[in-house]
């Protein structure tokens, strides 16, 4: 980092005060509308607030104790892990592949990249409905198309792994463009000289990619992965619309389970406790993102 210029002492003080003043509105805005609800969430998580059983406002760790022996919660974490892992992996893979591919496309065909961006703009509820119809064999044009050739496409949504696959595909469809955008950006930041130099030194394309391009892309890839991973903790509309958590409970990810506890089972306090757990997980991951970003920007 470059050293700060130090004119007169008084001027420096003035300057730093100026900087701090510029931050005040942002701190106020975030403080009121974000911190208050979050504080409320933590409060509820330690309470016994239940809509029909009645509430004594006993505060304690009872909800967190319950979580330890809650098999459905364990199951939901497992589902969430599967959805997040496969979803994020596919998004990053497809996003990178398209970004690399689009780099080679020049001239008027560049307009075509808009086709890859389209899915990013469709609202999630609509994404879920569109894919629900595509995965329902009796409605899906894909099934009808393959039927023409006598090929039967299996039903996805009636088995645990099929349903998880379906949700992962829908989620990937709408979110891979985000990965694509960031990786395209990173690719542009890589000087072509480096790759050319490697080629002149006799490296194959594959070797160039592995030893030159990939290490330079690594921060971007990591950033995308972590961003998408944290977002994937909030999985909801896809599950809600496509499977309602089924078959059985096999696609009830943690966020969905918190919703069931809060709204269906009226156990607001327990739902909040689960949300607190998710929040702490997000805090842990965003800690690493922040660390990573610190290294990148300085």
């Amino acid at each position: 980092m470059t050293s700060h210029a130090t004119p007169r002492r008084g001027a420096t003080y003035e300057l730093q005060r100026g900087y701090r003043l510029m931050m005040v509105p942002a701190i106020l805005a975030v403080g009121i509308f974000a911190i208050v609800p979050l504080a409320g969430m933590f409060g509820l998580a330690f309470s016994d607030y239940h809509l029909i059983r009645g509430t004594n406002w006993d505060f304690g760790f009872q909800n967190f104790a319950k979580m330890l022996s809650d098999k459905r919660l364990m199951n939901s974490i497992y589902v969430m892990a599967a959805l997040s892992f496969f979803g994020v992996a596919l998004q990053v893979l497809i996003g990178s592949a398209v970004a690399v591919g689009l780099q080679k496309i020049t001239g008027k065909w560049r307009v075509g990249r808009i086709l890859f961006l389209l899915p990013y703009a469709v609202p999630h509820v609509a994404v879920a409905l569109i894919w629900l119809s595509l995965f329902t064999p009796t409605l899906s044009p894909i099934n009808a198309f393959f039927d023409l050739f006598g090929i039967t496409v299996p039903a996805f949504l009636t088995s645990q792994w099929g349903a998880i696959t379906a949700i992962v595909i829908a989620d990937t469809w709408t979110n891979f463009p985000f990965a694509m955008l960031i990786i395209m950006a990173a690719l542009q930041g890589i000087s072509p000289d480096l790759e050319e130099a490697a080629a002149i030194d006799g490296a194959t394309r594959v070797k160039t990619f592995i030893y030159i391009t990939l290490p330079l892309l690594a921060p971007a890839l990591l950033m995308v992965t972590l961003f998408r991973f944290i977002d994937s903790l909030k999985h909801f509309p896809m599950i809600f619309v496509m499977t309602k958590g089924g078959p059985g409970r096999s696609t009830q990810a943690t966020n969905f389970y918190a919703y069931v506890q809060t709204f269906q089972n009226s156990n607001v306090a327990y739902g909040a406790a689960i949300a607190v757990m998710l929040f702490l997980m997000a805090a842990l991951i965003s800690y690493y993102v922040a660390k990573l970003n610190q290294r990148v920007t300085t």
Binding site: F135, T136, P137, T138, L139, N143, T152, P154, A155, F156, L157, T158, A163, T243, K244, G246, P247
Partner: peptide, 20 residues
């Protein structure tokens, strides 16, 4: 029909309307 294990009213209705 295929995929019936994930049918809701909308899919039931569509299956009947399409003669499936």
């Amino acid at each position: 029909p295929a995929g019936a294990g994930n049918f809701n009213f909308a899919e039931v209705k569509a299956a009947a309307e399409n003669g499936q």
